[in-house]
Structures are given as C-alpha cells and as structure tokens.
Write a protein that binds this DNA or RNA. Structure first.
Length: 308
RNA sequence: CGCGGGGUGGAGCAGCCUGGUAGCUCGCAAGGCUCAUAACCUUGAGGUCCCGGGUUCAAAUCCCGGCCCCGCAA
C-alpha cells in the first residue's frame, strides 16, 4: 500500500518517523512551506520536512493547496492512502478523493469531543480527566469523519499541553500504524460520530493567554497548564508582561479584589481571583528568564496589595 | 538585514545616561536566640563586573568588534 504523508509540526514528525518503521512504503510527503520564524526571521523547515529528508523521501510544500501543479505531482505518486496528521490546511475534495482508501487522519482527542485545531489545550482547560487519540476518515467537514480506532489516556492533575502532547504522540503513532494495518486487512468498520456529543477546540490565539482574574483560581490554573507552552498564560505587572508557567490553587480566607497581590515574600507570590487565590510558582517577566517565585521576588519588588 | 531587552560573588537584580569606594534581596559558613520555624539577631567567606580591542590619569560605566541568553513578531 503506497502511502503519502501530510503533516507539519513535531507531533506529525513523530508519527512519520514511526511510519518509516512500518511495512507500508511512504512514497511522498507534503508539508507547509518553510517560513521565516524565530528571532532573526530565519527560514526554518518544518519538523516533518526534516524527517522526510533524512529518509530521502520526496517532499512537496505548496504555497497554495489548490495549486494544479501540486495536485498533478501528488496524483503522480499514485497513493493508495493519504495520511494526514496536523497538516494545518483544509484539504479540497479533490485530494480527499484522490487515493482509493481516502484520507486517514489522526486527531488528538476523543472525538466527537474537541473537534478543531487545538484539542489538547482545550481538553485540559475543559477539566477533562481523560484524553486520547482518534483515527478517522477525513471528510469535508472539520474532524467530522467516521472513526476507525480510538485510544484513551488519562490526564494527570499536573499535565500541561506540552506533557500531554508528549504522551499522546507515541500513542497516536502506534494507533496510526494499527489503523493502516486494519485498512489493509479490510477488517475496520468506521463508526459515525455522535453529533449530539460534539464539542469544539478552536485554534488558540495569543490573546487567549491573557488571564482574567475574575475567573475562579481552579479555572485559571487549568489555563496556565493548557496554554503551556503556547501561548502561555500571562498578565501585566506594573505594565510589564508577566508569563505564568506554573501555578497552584490556594484557599483564600481574606477578602480581596481579583488580581490583587495577597502575599509577596519567601512563602510565595499569591494573587486573589474570583474564587480562591492562585500561588504563582514559576513566572517569567518579559525579556527575562523563567524563574521560581522565590528567585523572581529576590530581584523584583512586588508590593502586597498591588494589582495585576 | 524584522523590532526590542539583557549578560555584575552560588541565585535573582541595582549601579552604566552624568567614568574615580562593588550595592540590594536571597543562598552559603560560623556563632547567638527560641519548645519550635523557608523565623529572628551577629559575624564571615565568596566577584576575571561575558570575551577581545580602543579612548582616558582612571572603564562595570564611553566607543568598535565578537560570543551567549531572553521578550515581541512569525
């Protein structure tokens, strides 16, 4: 079975790496074009491109997904199956219907929950106790295709998007290989998703990270974990951007306005919220390194009663 | 050439503009106090002020070059 792989970021690269160990040949890879990124705006190849090139497989990186020249090359690879993992573009029907086995997608949630671009953060923010990976057939409607296989993993109370993603990546890669084997053997029956249980996980924006101190401390703490490593939960301290990388919920007895500094000493940096208080355990001031509250307070004076 | 901040005892920072004594909050060591403490008091050790040039009587501080770290943006 000839496979074409489409994907872009680290998770996708992980799956691709696993595919190269599987029996079916990967005959071509499609990824997003190199984009200027990072400090200095140097052009950086996507993780998927790097993996593909290290295995000497041809790579396409079309600027426009509907480019006819791209489609011609793609169909010239005569794929039996197209595997799509976090590619980052909506595929036109023409591509969805190109391969005899269609397009197989790996999605990092327990569909039908958390359809969309950012299932992992939203599962954490949504207070879920478990997440997982789903393989399904791609259809035109976003993440709405029939499900092949699904596997659960639990979300731990201290899981961040980074840590959960790291746990999901190998599970997804394994499930992908199993799904391909099942498709080849012809013993998989796709199950339609239950529309009544659908929830959405919209793409994250930088502004989503801005903390609303009126929320309960438990919600803010989940956002701190869900937005780690990106876009990062943040607030403003005396006009300076302050990222919060790790926080802990504290019972608050005293009455204080949300966002007010309750304590800023060797015991910690506590902020009042809409319900309960939040102890900032690890923070980062703009232009500065990530620091524990203790280290941070050694060099930056924060007055009790100040507002964030 | 995307924009910007920074590299100062073990940690985090101030000092730099307006050159001339090395500062603050901690940590560490020793002693004291206390039933007790990430408590408090006393004393102490510890610094090539990123590297290389230059200007100057004198450079952490001003100028030129380099290396490294970080925020924004993407």
């Amino acid at each position: 079975m000839r496979i074409v792989f489409m994907g872009t970021p680290e998770v996708a690269a992980f799956s691709l790496e696993r595919l190269f160990e599987a029996p079916e040949p990967v005959v071509g890879v499609v990824t997003q074009p190199d984009r200027p990124a990072g400090r200095g705006q140097k052009s950086i190849p996507s993780p998927v491109r790097r993996v593909a090139e290290s295995h000497h497989v041809p790579v396409l990186a079309p600027e426009k997904i509907r480019d006819p020249a791209f489609f011609n090359t793609l169909s010239g690879w005569t794929p039996d199956l197209i595997v799509v993992v976090a590619f980052g573009r909506i595929l036109p029907r023409q591509i969805l219907e190109l391969a005899p086995h269609g397009c197989l997608n790996v999605h990092y949630s327990l569909l039908p929950k958390y359809r969309g671009a950012a299932p992992v953060p939203w599962a954490i923010i949504g207070s879920e106790e478990k997440s997982g990976v789903t393989t399904m057939r791609l259809v035109e409607k976003m993440d709405a295709g029939p499900i092949f296989l699904q596997r659960e993993i639990s979300i731990e109370p201290n899981d961040t998007t980074a840590s959960l993603q790291a746990k999901l990546a190998p599970v997804g890669a394994e499930l992908l290989v199993e799904t391909i084997a099942g498709l080849k053997a012809g013993n998989l029956t796709p199950q339609a998703q239950e529309e009544s249980k659908v929830t959405y996980a919209p793409v994250l924006k930088k502004e989503d990270g801005l903390i609303d101190w009126n929320l309960p401390a438990v919600s803010i703490e989940r956002r701190v974990r869900g937005f780690n490593p990106w876009p990062s939960a943040y607030t403003y301290l005396a006009g300076n951007l302050l990222k919060i990388h790790r926080a802990r919920v504290i019972e608050m007895t005293e009455k204080a306005a949300p966002g007010e500094v309750l304590k800023a000493d060797k015991e910690g940096l506590w902020i009042a919220t809409g319900a309960g208080a939040l102890s900032l355990e690890e923070v980062q001031l703009e232009n500065r390194k990530k620091l524990t509250a203790r280290e941070f307070l050694n060099g930056t004076r924060v007055e009790k009663g100040a507002r964030l």
